[in-house]
């Protein structure tokens, strides 16, 4: 294939439309994030970023094909943590964590515990007390099995020293009505859920570094005595054959998009916390995250 010859990275990159493959369905958070970037990308770099959705198997369908694309910088793929670490551990997928060359992580949505507005649980302390008394009668709705929410729930059980029940749903949209209808005690989800359901739902605690601007009254797990800063990270990866300079260039491009004031405002409104893990910081970041996920995975019985 002629196209697979890696082109030398020119300062002129991008010279033609860049294809961004998103491993999740349109309308999901990864898709929304990419579509916001699409607008800024066109404005800053004068080229199109074409979003192509290749959803399936929780993202694994797309990620297992990443290295089959030409490494010319014109095909990039959205990557998600903890998915790309946990899925290979589980075994059913046809890629390994090392197969994914991440060049930049740009956003994350922190884990959060959310209850409905009518819930008698007002604070995290109430939840701990109820969980200790109720044990498996206390239920947490989350999206997916062996997913970020599932990991977070396992971690929460360890933090509280309880055995509460995790109830998996197909997606975050699916679990909303169960939480609002009071069929489960709480949701183990992200801050974005509390934002969309403002007034109907209440966030008890959030796994971010600092309190969130949109929720100044909600304590972080750090304040509550837990070593817990985590959530779902979104970034971009390239095929293995992509040359080093091009990887850096793409990383820089996404950093630049992250700095755009209009983009920052829109992302903040949507509840996305922006981060800037550039290509040079990637090895250290991945090592740290992988270690944390492995530890939890062992508790969940996923890893040997």
């Amino acid at each position: 294939m002629a196209a697979s010859m890696a082109l030398p990275a020119r300062a002129a990159y991008p010279e033609k439309p860049v294809r961004m493959i998103i491993a999740f369905a349109p309308g999901g958070e990864s898709d929304i994030g990419a579509r916001q970037q699409q607008i800024v990308f066109r404005r800053l770099f004068g080229q199109e970023m074409v979003i192509e959705s290749k959803a399936g198997a929780g993202g694994a369908l797309a990620w297992s094909t990443l290295n089959t694309y030409p490494g010319d910088g014109y095909t990039v793929m959205g990557t998600n943590l903890p998915h790309i670490v946990l899925q290979p551990l589980e075994g059913n997928v046809q890629y390994k964590t090392e197969d994914i060359t991440n060049v930049h992580f740009y956003q994350y949505t922190p884990d959060a515990i959310i209850v409905r507005a009518e819930s008698p649980l007002k604070t995290y302390a109430d939840l701990v007390k109820a969980s200790k008394e109720g044990q498996d009668r206390v239920t947490f709705a989350g999206s997916g099995t062996n997913s970020a929410n599932h990991v977070a729930h396992t971690r929460l059980n360890r933090l509280m020293g309880t055995k509460t029940t995790y109830v998996p749903f197909k997606g975050t949209g699916d679990l909303v009505s169960s939480v609002l209808g009071g069929h489960v005690t709480a949701a183990m989800s992200y801050n974005t859920l509390a934002l969309t359901q403002k007034g109907k739902m209440r966030m008890l605690a959030v796994a971010s570094e600092k309190r969130l601007a949109a929720f100044p009254d909600v304590p972080t797990f750090k304040e509550l005595g837990g070593d817990w800063v985590d959530g779902a990270y979104r970034g971009v990866g390239v095929p293995k054959s992509t040359p080093e300079d091009l990887r850096k260039r793409i990383s820089d491009i996404f950093s630049e998009i992250n700095r755009d004031p209009e983009f920052r405002q829109k992302m903040a409104d949507g509840g996305f916390e922006l981060i800037d893990v550039t290509y040079d910081k990637m090895p250290a970041f991945m090592a740290e995250r992988t270690k944390a996920y492995l530890e939890i995975a062992r508790m969940m019985g996923l890893a040997k």
């Binding site: 999901g28 929304i32 949209g173 969309t196 403002k198 007034g199 409104d269």
Partner: peptide, 27 residues
Amino acid sequence: TLGIPSNPVMALMIGAMIIHGIQPGPQ
């Protein structure tokens, strides 16, 4: 009224709202 997508089309509508800077939901 609740910001709940009852089918994939509605999930896309939510996405469209967010892209247009509208926070979907009860408010």
